[in-house]
């Protein structure tokens, strides 16, 4: 049973949509922040958006773009799961909630900000907006959030629990992240590679185990996480690296999207684009931490 990537949606410092991402990939260039969720107006009425903070807007926008890209907007969500990964969660809303306490005291904690600061809020909004009543999962694993969450998506498809998964990752750049970024750089323990900026954005995918009519981007061949050397080396094709030491050959695309725990999802999007374009046959996306943990996502071509 094969799992295919049917649609890709993304918003970040490079702009909005898979075409903008593909252009950044081809031409390079530095991302510009903040990312702009305004294109969400095309999918969700303004009045309905009021409960969505920036973090959720970025995620919901990328998710709708992925569905649109797959030609699946408006499809019956009956056999659809929602899986979201985030490294830091809604840091902007978390800060706003703490601000409400700092400024006006305990009794003035904002319940709206508190509810918004829960990590699974974007997944909840997606379920509500799409009428998706199947399983929903949000994972927070810092730099390995994306491969970890993708493991669950793959497992649910393999088990036949669902036959489509709306899978994605989102991270937000708030004043808190900017401060952490700056301070860690000062302390010579940078959070990202040289030349990369602190980033934000969301990248989403429609994964499917169905026999879909539309031609997919690529297949999802394997996902694994663990500690120690990642399996399957040496990799036959392009390797996209995130984090870890510079001891393996591969490309680092973080300077295009900015550095954030969700960045491997943008690498995944780039890999899908490259395979569809025929520029690459196979791509391995390898995320690694300083402690020696890895997350590996292996993508292959769509020939039947």
């Amino acid at each position: 049973m094969r799992i295919t990537v049917q649609g890709v949606g993304a918003v970040g410092g490079f702009g909005c949509g898979v075409a903008a991402l593909a252009q950044a990939l081809a031409q390079g260039g530095a991302p510009s922040f903040p990312a702009d969720p305004a294109p969400l107006d095309r999918f969700v009425p303004k009045r309905t958006q009021r409960r969505l903070d920036r973090f959720s807007r970025l995620a919901v926008l990328a998710a709708h773009l992925a569905l649109e890209d797959a030609g699946a907007l408006g499809d019956d969500p009956e056999r659809l799961a929602v899986v979201v990964a985030s490294g830091y969660g809604a840091t902007g809303t978390t800060l706003a909630m703490i601000d409400s306490i700092l400024e006006s005291g305990d009794a003035c904690t904002s319940p709206i900000h508190f509810a918004g600061s829960l990590h699974n809020t974007p997944a909840a909004h997606l379920s509500i907006l799409l009428g998706a009543k199947g399983p929903s999962l949000t994972v927070s694993q810092f730099e390995l959030s994306v491969p970890s969450a993708l493991m669950a998506a793959q497992l649910w498809l393999d088990q036949g629990r669902v036959d489509r998964v709306l899978f994605g990752a989102v991270d937000e750049k708030s004043e808190l992240n900017d401060y952490l970024w700056e301070r860690r750089a000062e302390l010579e323990r940078p959070l990202g590679p040289a030349g990369a900026a602190c980033g934000e954005g969301a990248a989403f995918f429609l994964l499917s185990s169905r026999d879909e009519p539309a031609s997919p981007y690529c297949t999802l061949d394997a996902v694994s996480t663990g500690r120690g050397p990642a399996p399957g080396q040496p990799y036959p094709g392009l390797v996209l690296l995130d984090g870890g030491a510079d001891d393996l050959p591969g490309r680092r695309l973080t300077p295009l999207w900015g550095c954030m725990p969700a960045a491997p999802a943008f690498d995944l999007a780039a890999a899908a684009v490259l395979i569809r374009q025929g520029a690459e046959e196979r791509v391995d996306c390898l995320a690694r931490t300083e402690d020696g943990d890895f997350g590996l996502i292996r993508l292959g071509p769509c020939r039947r």
Binding site: L118, H119, N120, T138, V139, Q141, S148, T225, G226, R227
Partner: peptide, 12 residues
């Protein structure tokens, strides 16, 4: 010293 998959679930 576990080396297998690792997942923190944040489903409230």
């Amino acid at each position: 010293g576990l080396t297998g998959p690792c997942q923190t679930i944040v489903n409230a």
